[in-house]
Amino acid sequence: MRRFRFGVTARIVAVLVVLGVAVFPLYWMFVTALSSNSDLFADQPRLTPDLGQFGVFVDALAEGKAAGWLLNSLIIAVGTMVLSVGLGIPLGYALSRFSFWGKAVLTVVLLFTQMLPEALMVVPLFALFRRFELLDSLTGLVLVNSAFVLPIVALILKGAIDGIPKELEEAARADGARPFTTLTRINVPLIAPSIAATAVIAFFHAWNEYVFAVTFIFNPDLQPASVGIANFIGELGTPIQTVMAVAFLFTLPAVAFYLLVQKYVVSGMTAGAVKG
């Protein structure tokens, strides 16, 4: 009994330590945002937020710029998530279930695209975007982010579909279902946890993306938050509390999104672990 209690206590402590490591950066950002100038570089750092400094959040949102940046980030991230998952499902299904010429090469090429750094692609993509008048538009960023994240989404979903017994599809086909019906009615519900996981990957990729956003967007009103926050960093000075306040706000929608889909992600991780 004593051993059992010790085990439970140890697990709780371990969870708290991991939780602390994960949450601490967010907490420290919050504390820094709510620090006075004298607290910022004090010998003994302030460990708790000074709620009297809460005005920094109000000031950060006052001009409406930060709210606009967050909205732009949300549009880009949700758009990327929808497009890449929407295209990734049929692509993953095709790679998993159909035999066609060049399939192996296509899979390798998809992997290869993941090895290209964004910085390498900025100049050619800029020329391409200029040609198709996609510069200075959120659609352009959704497209480029989707292009970068689609391969990994498709490959993850291919793996998930590989795990579904073909007999289920054969049974559906025997009942007259076409491939699209089989995909949407049989496969998609079964790989829902993997879809949720890839949605998280796509969302966070687009939410954090900086290089394309800073280069392809000229209009300040269309900048996402990743670029907007960097605008606070001046050549000769930086308002640290304001940066931390906006950065803290920047993390909240992403955390909220993860909390919304985590149930599916977790169930995806445990799917198939127990067979009854």
């Binding site: 549009i75 949700v78 758009g79 200075d136 538009s137 959120l138 659609t139 000229f218 209009n219």
Partner: peptide, 11 residues
């Protein structure tokens, strides 16, 4: 919808 609506913004 939001993406399509805001996509073609240009000054």
């Amino acid at each position: 919808v939001a993406t399509l609506l805001t996509g073609c913004g240009s000054d």
